[in-house]
């Protein structure tokens, strides 16, 4: 069981950010658009240059190659991208390993034979979650991950992600525009001001 520790993270004249997410806990993050929520997630997953430390349990990020780090601390972007023709080509694990996840999100296993070009944006986004979880990540960073989904799909997606977080005891950082969603899913909430400062929010909706 590993917590996600971010200390003195500093990038593009933003920060420093220091916070910790405990195993099995969901931290919700809101903020004005342009306040750098996505940049923060990108810095944690080591996609942009930055200063400061990020650790998962006793694993410091510099100790492992970047691809291993990104598999372990997995980020789900707001928009999903696919590069092969068939859905199944994007999965490296045997079908029985992801069958359960697929079903929870409302897919039959034969979705793997579908062509990506036939998928709707929402289907792509739900399948992107399955694709992300196949790596068995030990921490999750979600960036507006349900923005393209309808109400029913948001619900089953939230359930799936929360179950994963609790059962696997992984820390989860959930960025959302929707305060009600964060009320539902988050144990702690943060607010990123437009000047880039990070505020803790104690329960309830933030007034801004």
């Amino acid at each position: 069981m590993n917590d996600l520790q971010v200390s003195d993270l500093f990038f593009q004249s933003r920060g420093p950010y220091t916070f910790r997410i405990a195993p099995g806990q969901v931290a919700g993050l809101q903020g004005a658009s342009g306040s750098g929520k996505t940049l923060l997630l990108r810095a944690i997953s080591d996609l942009d240059p930055h200063q400061g430390q990020v650790r998962l349990g006793d694993m410091a990020r510099e100790q492992v190659p970047a691809p291993i780090w990104r598999k372990t601390v997995a980020m789900l972007p707001a928009e999903s991208f696919w590069w092969f023709d068939a859905v199944g080509d994007h999965f490296q694990v045997p079908v029985q390993d992801i069958e359960g996840t697929l079903q929870q999100l409302g897919f039959e296993p034969d979705v793997l034979c579908w062509e990506v070009s036939r998928l709707s944006t929402g289907e792509k986004q739900r399948l992107a979650i399955v694709r992300l979880l196949q790596n068995n990540p030990r921490a999750l960073l979600l960036d507006e991950s349900t923005a393209s989904l309808d109400a029913a799909n948001i619900e089953c997606t939230e359930t799936l992600l929360l179950d994963y977080c609790r059962l696997q005891q992984v820390p989860l950082l959930w960025v959302s525009h929707d305060p009600q969603q964060l009320e539902r899913v988050a144990d702690d909430q943060f607010y990123l001001e437009s000047d880039g400062t990070l505020q803790g929010v104690r329960g309830g909706r933030h007034g801004r």
């Binding site: 996609l47 970047a66 691809p67 990104r70 999903s80 694709r131």
Partner: peptide
């Protein structure tokens, strides 16, 4: 970058 995020 999506591919990088998946560990490639």
């Amino acid at each position: 970058e999506q591919r990088l995020l998946l560990g490639e």
